[in-house]
Design a protein around this nucleic acid. Structure first.
Lengths: 411, 411
DNA sequence: CAATTTTGTGCAACGGCTGTACAAATACAT
DNA sequence: ATGTATTTGTACAGCCGTTGCACAAAATTG
């Protein structure tokens, strides 16, 4: 007797996950959950027949809905023209949704997000100043269970955004920022707090925000998207390479906060000296501008205070913004030489501060990078509101896009 | 008619370039051009039937040959055991070969390389001290034409390794090192110098050497391979991500030579200050050790001189090696924080010097990178002799592996 | 109302993959 | 030597997604 030839659980064959149905759904997802059938067929690049086959597959799976009444809108923006108008394709109301959680400095956000990236619901809770691990994860899982119950949709899984490097292999969060935790087995903790065996994905907040910006925001279409952000403590970085998060071997890549900005600078908690995030994160910025800073006041408030101070000519604020823009530009120049991005996005406080520091940043980039001088890289502020939440959902929805299946509801 | 629902459970995949025949040939290539049929079948992960189908396809295309007389060697190293012995599979003598050219400081190398990475022939010519573009490309194409004529094999294409950043899009070489050229449209120049319409691929020498090390050398099996090298002028870097060169948006990524090693250091030709390659390339090293340096003497000779000096306790040499190891370790630490590699390879002079500087390098890595302290990254010297040539051939052979076709010999 | 243009569908065919059954070739025990 | 266990290669029928073509459907244009 021969043992089963195919040992793999998922699928014995070369399951490319690149079949037409999967690609079609991916296109729909990237288009925001709604597109005409003709657009999708054209982008698929195969015949109308094959596209129809794939589409009917998606409809049968309950992932997608096709309008009966076509409207005359053309894909190429030409408004209308001769020819039979194309049907509209939507994400179905029976399609699975992702639950996303984002652990921020001052709040805990949880959301229900659909294919296409539409946020169906968000719940936000403030969190105490110095929370312990157990209570936080209790609250996360309680919210997740609640939203899962009330969603009325199949749950494809959970995506969690953590303010720390996250090991890809097992969702372990290494040294979360602005929490006095040593290291947290995030994936397991969330799993254990749930009633149902939903798959749990964990990612670094900057990575996830960048991913969301690439799919639904200001990063759309970029091949190598470099993302930098600061919320309060620390500087987050991410690189989206051809549509996927660049995580390195373990998931710890793009820890740009610990790029050396001043080799003889003060000691950083990471062991090195003069790390960029020691001198250029929100906390350092507020301190340098002699402005009050507290995590309880939101980013928006602090940014407004800072910008107002700088705009009315407050010398400390102006100087602080200039100084930090210089350091940031220098850091970006180094990253350009290593990563050769074709777009750079600034998120968090950096997005709000960008108008003030743009010139200084650009000048430093040009001086420190010969690649930048050869072909300047566009720098833009990020646009999405809850980017990290969206990105966390992407982790889950990507799996749906590839397998076209909802994980078994119970096992 | 509606398609059945059970498509992607055991679904035969869409016809991608990742079909079994292509994957089988890739496995054979990575195995060095020779393997037993059973090994290949096991690694393919599909049934023996499908593997046989793919294999017969490759045989029919003249890419692969199967031994009639099987030998009893087992794949798992167990020597022998019960069961029918597996046939051996080789790269066929009728399979297409790649021509590779490598423009070095002091020599021009051209080779004929087969699937599996075997070098069938190498020709090396010295080049004058300050060559002009036209004469160099005349010599390159003359050698290529000659080796192509005499190969007696179908030519899959040309791979060229250049000591400069290379634009992926069109094979343009930006500011070649140790040549006083402004920029060279390498791909077009080589194409025009050939009689036949062979496809021409161009790459950066460090990228190609790293690619070769990953496929056939000390980098095998690494997921994120960081490669650093110095030949004479400048420091080359490369990252191999899951088996492919990380080139960034344009191909200019990993210009690590212009990482800032000393923010207030001397001006570099790149416009920045204190670039790593100003203070840590071979030229700087020889100068710091007060040793004679000339591109005419090969790397090997200079390395021997330097190592001998350091080993007999010459203070200048010892200090120079220490100093450079420190800078290198610091640079590597920064790259670890950004790239999270799982292996680091040192090539060129760095490989030969590594035994002397290992301790210093490791210490600096640990001090400057908290990721390194969490999980140390192994550092190894590179092993291949003509890595860049092999890598250049990979560019060409990759196309064969994907399409299983030789480009039409004439058109 | 006919002509044109674009879009959706039915149908036959194809190609690669799957699993099963069977034959071939070896080692090992008796 | 003979038979059994074990592993490897091959033949065959069936499946499924894709393809290309022909034709029907639904709009604009004249």
């Amino acid at each position: 007797m021969t043992p089963p030839l195919s040992s793999s659980i998922i699928g014995p064959s070369g399951n490319d996950s690149a079949n037409n149905a999967s690609r079609l759904l991916t296109l729909l997802h990237h288009a925001g959950g709604e597109a005409t059938r003709a657009e999708l067929t054209a982008e698929l690049g195969c015949g109308r027949s094959a596209a129809g086959y794939a589409l009917s597959d998606l409809v049968n799976r309950g992932l997608v809905r096709v309008d009966d009444r076509p409207t005359a809108r053309r894909g190429d923006g030409s408004g209308s023209g001769p020819g039979r108008p194309s049907h509209h394709v939507h994400v179905a109301a029976t399609s699975p949704v992702a639950l996303a959680a984002h652990l921020r400095v001052d709040t805990l956000d949880v959301a229900v997000i659909e294919l296409g990236g539409r946020v169906l619901r968000v719940e936000r809770e403030p969190i105490e100043v110095r929370p312990d691990v157990a209570s936080i994860f209790l609250r996360i899982t309680r919210l997740l269970r609640k939203l899962g119950r009330e969603a009325g949709r199949p749950i494809a899984g959970i995506g969690v955004s953590m303010p720390s490097p996250v090991r890809t292999e097992d969702g372990y969060a290494l040294e979360p920022r602005h929490l006095e935790w040593a290291g947290v087995p995030t994936r397991d903790l969330v799993r254990e707090g749930l009633d149902e065996p939903w798959p749990v994905h964990v990612g670094n907040d900057a990575n996830l925000a960048a991913l969301a910006e690439h799919r639904h925001g200001a990063g759309r279409g970029a091949h190598q998207l470099l993302y930098l952000t600061t919320e309060h403590i620390g500087i987050g970085g991410a690189l989206i390479t051809e549509g996927t998060v660049f995580g390195g071997a373990r998931g710890y890549a793009m820890e740009v906060g610990h790029t050396t900005a001043d080799a003889d600078g003060p000691r950083c908690s990471c062991g090195s000296r003069g790390c960029l995030e020691l001198v250029a994160d929100t906390r350092a910025l507020m301190r340098a501008a002699y402005l009050p800073d507290s995590p309880v006041t939101g980013i928006e408030y602090r940014a407004r205070v800072l910008i107002e101070a700088a705009e009315r000519g407050d010398p400390a604020a102006t100087q602080a913004v200039d100084h930090i823009s210089t350091l940031l530009g220098s850091g970006i120049a180094g990253l350009i030489n290593v990563l050769d991005p074709d777009r750079i996005l600034l998120g968090g406080l950096l997005a709000k501060l960008y108008p003030l520091g743009a010139a200084r940043i650009a000048a430093e980039m040009a001086e420190r990078s010969f690649l930048e001088r050869a072909v300047p890289v566009p720098v833009l502020p990020a646009t999405l509101d809850c980017a990290a939440l969206l990105g966390a959902a992407e982790l889950v929805l990507d799996h749906v896009l590839q397998t076209l299946q909802v994980p078994a509801p119970a096992e």
